Amino acid sequence: MTQRNDAALEFLLSRRSRPAKTLVAPVPTRAELLPLLTAAARTPDHGKLEPWRFVVIQGAAMPRLADLAVQAGERLGKSGDDIAKARSQFDLGHLAVAVVEVQKPSPKVPAIEQSYSAGAVCLALVNAALAAGWGANWLSGWASHDRHFCQQAFGLADNERIAGFIHIATQGATPPERPRPDLSDLTTWMQE
Rank of each mutant, 00 (worst) to 15 (best):
A20K: 03
L23K: 03
V24G: 00
P26F: 04
P28R: 06
A31S: 10
A31F: 13
A31M: 15
L33D: 07
P35K: 01
L36F: 12
L37S: 03
A39K: 06
A40P: 12
R42H: 11
T43N: 02
P44G: 02
P44W: 15
E50P: 00
F54T: 15
V56G: 05
V56S: 00
I57W: 08
Q58I: 01
G59K: 07
A60V: 03
R64P: 04
L65W: 00
A69N: 05
Q71G: 11
A72L: 10
A72E: 14
G73H: 10
G77Q: 02
K78Q: 14
G80D: 03
G80C: 01
G80M: 11
D82T: 02
D82A: 09
A86F: 03
R87I: 13
Q89E: 05
Q89C: 08
D91W: 00
D91H: 04
D91C: 03
G93R: 06
L95R: 06
A98G: 05
A98C: 11
A98H: 00
V100K: 06
E101C: 07
V102F: 00
V102E: 14
S106W: 13
P110A: 14
A118R: 09
G119T: 08
A120M: 04
A120S: 09
L123D: 02
V126H: 01
V126T: 04
V126C: 11
N127A: 07
W134H: 05
A136E: 11
A136W: 15
A136Y: 15
A136L: 09
W138M: 14
S140N: 13
G141W: 14
A143I: 10
S144V: 15
